[in-house]
Design a protein around this nucleic acid. Structure first.
Lengths: 211, 211
DNA sequence: CGTTTTAGACAGACTGGTTTGTATCGAGAC
DNA sequence: GTCTCGATACAAACCAGTCTGTCTAAAACG
């Protein structure tokens, strides 16, 4: 106890010059640091195999601080999924596809070009939504949340399909998304060309669909 | 508990003829009961969330008996995957497709009919190979094992594709399997018609592929 | 301006439960 | 006597979540 006190004092001394800055920053972004650490760990190792101890260790936060911002680990996983949608679905996938082309039909195909880039990343982390969906049984709230996020991806496909004048949009979304998830699994198996193969198949489906 | 013992004794008595047989049977019976219990639990709840205690409880076996037959839980999961291939891939999928039609091209499509039946089961358990693949990181032996079993499914598709006179078999297998895995994920999301939707898309891919 | 209060952060012990895997012992079969 | 089995206790690690105590910066108040 006294030893710990001394350690903390020694700790504080080198930081004395800008201690207020550090403290203020720390206070403001404690939640942010937790979520950032959780994002990295959950995305790369799965939500089930990552414990809260690993998250507090990586974020340099006290356990009670984590539980002040998130009432349970499940809450933290839900926050992770929402951030994943913001960062992966919206900031990356939709943006990436938008920059490649403006034609709705070409955008549908460009999804697989974006996926191809994704699959080339060294530490390819896989689709967090699929992972969480399969990590928890059907009755678990996290399973439903993951399904909801996957549904939003399908909604985006539906938006493109409508603007591309495609018929039977609901089924088209399902099928298109099956190719996307299917090639994501193939990438997890190690098939780096999965997205290119899926794109060629998608092209054929698209051709026949809009006849 | 005592009921199980009595059952075992009644079981053994009729086999009294050959001593070696009884001992051998008893040994294999224990291993068999463990594997059977592990199969049910692993298939329905995943390999990570099921502990060995649940397996010994369900199989009515002592813990040491389990570890005498399987040197670790990982070993047991490997045995589960092998049995899954024997029961699901060979005894069910391939057999089911074979009984539906004998034409290779029609068999490729019949896979999705079989899948449709599979998806209608009340406690649909999902694809154990995909689950294990995503449950463990890439460097884990179980990840590789699961990938190997998925590759065998693709090999079966390749066999059908060759006999159907389809060109570019390797890519065809990949794409066909993507549709299969993709609709399995969709089924896990709750889409009971996923296999039918996938079949219609597969039909279009097949038409264009064999041009 | 100086003092006190307060809120949030850090540290880490701790609880209660679960995990894999090991060790020991007695019962029953041959 | 030998072998396998079941039952049980156990070790060591891990898990989520709680709790106490300390620190400090900023707000509240004199």
């Amino acid at each position: 106890m006294h030893g710990l006190l001394r350690d903390r004092q020694q700790w504080s001394i080198p930081l004395h010059g800008n201690s207020e800055t550090i403290r203020t920053m720390a206070r403001q972004d404690a939640r942010e640091r937790i979520l950032e650490a959780a994002y990295d760990l959950f995305a790369h190792q799965g939500t089930r195999s990552v414990g809260v101890d690993a998250i507090i260790e990586k974020s340099g936060v006290a356990k009670m601080t984590l539980y002040r911002h998130f009432k349970s680990k499940q809450d933290l996983v839900l926050a992770f999924l929402e951030r994943r949608e913001a960062l992966w679905t919206e900031d990356w996938l939709i943006r990436e596809v938008s920059t490649r082309t403006s034609d709705p039909k070409e955008r549908l195909l460009a999804i697989f070009d974006a996926y191809h880039d994704w699959f080339q990343i060294d530490d390819f982390e896989g689709c967090a939504f699929i992972n969480v969906l399969l990590e928890y049984p059907a009755h678990n709230p996290l399973h439903g949340a993951a399904a909801g996020h996957l549904a939003k991806v399908r909604a985006y496909i539906g938006d493109l399909a409508v603007r591309a004048g495609i018929g039977n949009v609901p089924e088209f979304c399902d099928v298109w998304h099956m190719l996307m998830t299917g090639c994501t699994i193939a990438a997890a198996e190690g098939n780096r060309a999965a997205a290119l193969e899926a794109k060629r198949a998608a092209q054929r489906i698209l051709d026949h669909w809009s006849e």
